[in-house]
Amino acid sequence: MKINSSEIKWHLLFIILVLLLIYPLLFSLSTSFKTMSEAFQSSSLIPADPTFSAYDRVFTTINFVQILSNTFIIAALVTIFKLVTSVFAAYAFVFFHFKGKTALYFLLISTIFIPFTVTMIPNYITLSKVGFVDSIYGVALPQLADATGIFLLRQYMKGIPMSLMEVAELERASHLTRLRTIVVPLIRPAILSIGIIFFINSWNEYVWPAIMIKSEVNYTLSLALQMFVSSEGGTDVPVAMAVATLTMLLPLGLYAVCQKFIIGTFAQSGIKG
């Protein structure tokens, strides 16, 4: 293995970049093993006297498993629902011909440009009428209205050779069959990579759950962090960092295990052009 000398500078650049991006993650990990006073005394990445007491405090004061499972259920529901509806909608926009198609498509896509401040209050009122305040469904439902999936999947579906679809049409395969046997297998990497992003975004969602959720049994991980952050009484920093670390643990763990697959998926799913 010999690396070209002109490439070394690029490697250096990337190494610096990686270090910069990894540092905060290590910082939070290391702080979570410090005592409250050590956290403020030194910013060394290696705790002088590592302690699990922050994790102890997390697990004794909150029902972590419950919170973890709430977060997971919400993220999974949102991801699956969004993927399914987006695949169907994108299919209709690419392979059906009906009047008003373009108009309808742009109507849906325009919602990407609606800032969440617009929808916050009306959505709260709507969901409260059907009794979904303080429930994980109340957190999940408005997240379903997200057009990025439709947009991206439509791009990928447009890349499917028309000839394949014409053959299927001649064989009188129904649209559902075409969707199942041709479209989905061809754009599987794209579907999966979009799903991963959906999942991460929902997993980390903070603003909306903070409005919706009232009882601790319905808490999500980003809210759990807020249970240790008080501007009035001060913040238990090691615990906050422990919760932060735990919040990242599942996505990071999944990522570490499946990184080859995830990265490969992204690599294959480039928007054409």
Binding site: I121, I125, S128, K129, V133, A210, E216, L223, S230
Partner: peptide, 25 residues
């Protein structure tokens, strides 16, 4: 009695109260 924590101190609680009252509760 059920206790409910509202993040973000008094502004956070007022925000939630505002939303709750706006929805008739």
């Amino acid at each position: 009695v059920k206790e409910v924590y509202n993040p973000d101190m008094y502004p956070g609680l007022m925000k939630n109260l505002q939303a709750d009252v706006a929805s008739g509760k």
